[in-house]
Write a protein that binds this DNA or RNA. Structure first.
Lengths: 207, 207
DNA sequence: CCGATAGTGAACGCAACCGTCTTTTAGGGT
DNA sequence: ACCCTAAAAGACGGTTGCGTTCACTATCGG
């Protein structure tokens, strides 16, 4: 149904070519533009005009697909999210926690992560209701579930203290990373991940 | 114009009270109204008209005092904040941490706490720059410093593990409370404080 | 080759709300 | 008592950006 031969190829971003995409190709460009705008300026500064302009299309194409700005943002995030991946048994809680922490940090520093962070930090009362369930279900919940799995496995294995496999403990990692990202200049590199692991997570769960 | 009976023309529950305040009294009423609006509807829904109306005054009185909505909010928060109180030596790190956690929870559930939480969760890119320094200096920094003091004292006393007196560890408590308040329905009661203490903070710092 | 479908681009209406300004009135200093 | 300043109340203009609509045109299926 779609020809790989696209006229937009490479001879100039704004070369004046007609560039009329349809269906999935256009939708992908719109998502791209929406994530860019969301990442760089936040939800408030992202405008439908801006997205349409950056995607080289018009607002009508947007409103034919989504009823509102919020709907567009949600779909753009969903489309960019990889399916949650299970954590394999790596033999020790330390290795598994390290795996999750470093993976989380990578995601947090990706463009998707920046968009999600921006969005989370910018929800007024009405948007909050709209996005909170989504964020909880797609971001918070899977993370906590994964860590809880690690803790249970470690409890059975013996390298996690008995009784530590509870949601309060599982929440520490995401809470720390988001707190850091939000209030301390956003420096969430691998080094911080190691410190978090060594100073907080491992001491907290050791038997 | 010859009839002096224009005291209060509308639904005023004030009922013939001294409707025309000045100076400090008026300012206090404005702060009150601003905090109310901020708490109930968030920063976006708080409007200058709304604050003026709730304070039974006009916008002119607001703009004579503050250059913008953001300035008003900041002053209202500063005026409502109690001076930071030092943590006394209670003999054990557990007692001192419990003291801080429960104190933090009380503040978080007060009207001031609700206003601060709302504000933190709703900062678009331009406001963020404006408020971030303020929040860090007045909220995040003092809290971390207080906990760091507890950790150092405990380290010297021997009931806190060596090397735990670092900011990453000190940040765990506020990070957890804010994460909870923001993403998990806002249930931050004393019971949760005890669980946080027993499952996270004490295991993390025990020698 | 042709008609249906969908994208383009721009104009418009509309609502919210900021910040200014004006008019009338009350308090309080002197 | 008098006058000056500040307050109350609201009208006003300006900006922003959402969401709609319209005329036109490229692309695709048949």
């Amino acid at each position: 149904m779609d020809q790989p031969d696209r006229r937009q190829s490479a001879d100039g971003p704004a070369g004046g070519a007609p560039l009329r995409r349809r269906g999935k190709a256009l939708e992908a460009a719109i998502f791209e533009a929406a994530l860019d705008q969301l990442t760089s300026g936040g939800f408030a500064r992202m405008t439908m005009e801006g997205v349409a302009g950056a995607a080289q299309t018009g607002k009508a194409a947007l409103y034919r697909r989504w009823a509102s700005k919020a709907d567009l943002v949600m779909d753009a995030l969903v489309a960019a999210m990889p399916p949650p991946t299970g954590i394999p048994d790596l033999g020790s809680a330390e290795a598994e926690l390290r795996h999750v922490v470093q993976g989380y940090i990578v995601v947090l520093n990706s463009r998707l992560g920046a968009a999600v962070r921006t969005l989370m930090g910018e929800l007024d009362h009405e948007r909050a209701e709209f996005f909170k369930g989504f964020l909880h279900e797609r971001v918070v919940e899977p993370t906590a579930a994964g860590i809880l799995g690690i803790l249970r496995r470690g409890e059975a294995r013996g390298d996690v203290r008995k009784g530590a496999a509870v949601s309060t403990v599982a929440d520490v990692m995401p809470a720390m990373l988001l707190y850091r990202a939000k209030f301390c200049g956003g420096v969430c590199d691998e080094e911080f991940g190691e410190e978090l692991l060594g100073q907080v997570l491992l001491p907290m769960v050791r038997p």
